[in-house]
Amino acid sequence: MSQEITRTERSALIRQFTVLLSSTRWGARLARLLTTAHLGEWGLPSESAAQIVAELAANALVHGRVRGRDFRLDLAVHGGGTGVGAVLRIEVSDARGEHLPPGPGGMAVPGDDCESGRGLLIVEALADRWGVSPGPVPRKTVWAELDLVP
Rank of each mutant, 00 (worst) to 15 (best):
D70E: 13
A54M: 00
S133G: 12
D74N: 14
V53G: 07
L56K: 04
P104A: 05
R15M: 08
G27F: 02
Q16V: 14
I14K: 09
V62K: 13
W130L: 00
V84P: 11
R67D: 14
P104H: 04
G85S: 15
L34Y: 07
A127N: 06
R15K: 11
G68H: 05
R96D: 07
L121K: 03
H99E: 15
V62P: 06
E41M: 10
S48F: 05
L30G: 08
G27V: 00
A12S: 11
A50E: 03
V132S: 01
V84N: 14
V62H: 13
A49G: 02
P101E: 01
A60G: 08
L21T: 00
E98W: 11
E124R: 09
V84W: 03
V87C: 10
R67E: 13
P110G: 01
G103I: 00
H99D: 15
L21C: 09
A12I: 10
G119S: 14
G79W: 08
V62R: 15
V66I: 10
L34T: 03
Q16W: 07
T36P: 08
G80M: 02
D74L: 12
H63L: 05
T82V: 14
V92P: 03
G27C: 04
E47D: 14
I122D: 06
G83F: 01
D74W: 03
D70F: 00
T35D: 04
I90W: 04
G117Q: 08
R118T: 15
V19G: 02
G119A: 12
G97N: 08
T24A: 02
T18G: 10
G131R: 10
A50M: 04
R32Y: 09
A76H: 10
L75A: 03
L34P: 06
A60P: 07
A28G: 02
F17D: 01
D113I: 04
D74S: 12
S133F: 00
I90V: 09
G83D: 09
R65D: 12
V109N: 02
E41P: 04
G68T: 07
V84L: 11
R25D: 14
A127K: 05
V53F: 03
E98R: 15
L100H: 12
R72H: 10
A95R: 09
E115S: 13
V62S: 09
G79M: 02
S23R: 07
F17W: 07
L120G: 02
G131Q: 06
G64T: 03
W42P: 04
A37I: 11
G81N: 12
V109R: 07
G64D: 01
F17S: 05
D70Y: 08
S48W: 07
G81A: 13
L39W: 06
G117T: 06
A37P: 09
L33T: 15
E55H: 01
A31R: 06
V87K: 12
T36S: 11
H63T: 08
T36Q: 12
G119H: 06
G97T: 08
H78E: 14
S116I: 13
L33A: 14
E98S: 15
